[in-house]
């Protein structure tokens, strides 16, 4: 295992561990966030974004990492895709990272969600090739 593999492993473990400890992998906590009963999760997210603003500023000026600023313009899938993702997250209680945390925690019903995420991604790929021609931005095919 190379240093890059080890670093990737550590960052992934940290993300999964943190999402679990914040409570993002709990269906009930996510429901409490979306029902506007408990601000803790959304405040964690908002604070993360707020800290990243000076974080990127600093990192752009450090020599340790090549620039990774991906440009993310609005495209025809932005609103429709966000809408479908919002419904799915509220129904299943998981986003693409959270579902993996749930499985790791032993919440094995999340395997159903995981199958759904892969299937939905593949279905979109096929629908996009058949019907749409716009670019969905940097995430696809990274």
């Amino acid at each position: 295992m190379s240093a890059r593999h080890a670093a990737t492993l550590c960052v992934g473990v940290l993300l999964g561990f943190g999402l679990s400890r914040i409570g993002f992998s709990s269906w009930d906590e996510v429901e409490a966030m979306f029902a506007l009963r408990d601000p803790r999760l959304i405040m964690s997210f908002a604070l993360g974004v707020a800290l990243l603003v000076p974080g990127w500023w600093l990192m752009d000026r450090l020599p340790l990492a090549a620039a990774a600023a991906t440009h993310r313009p609005i495209h025809p899938g932005t609103v429709a895709g966000g809408l479908l993702f919002g419904v799915g997250w509220a129904v299943a209680g998981a986003c693409p990272a959270i579902v993996l945390v749930q499985v790791g925690e032993g919440q094995l019903a999340a395997l159903l969600t995981l199958v759904g995420v892969f299937a939905g991604n593949a279905i979109y790929a096929l629908v996009h090739r058949r019907f749409f021609r716009f670019s969905t931005g940097s995430c696809s095919g990274e």
Binding site: G81, C95, T136
Partner: peptide, 15 residues
């Protein structure tokens, strides 16, 4: 729900 997450995040180009 999971399928909507997979479909929607790919369509929106991110999660």
């Amino acid at each position: 729900g999971g399928s909507l997450v997979g479909f929607g995040t790919r369509m929106a180009g991110g999660c």
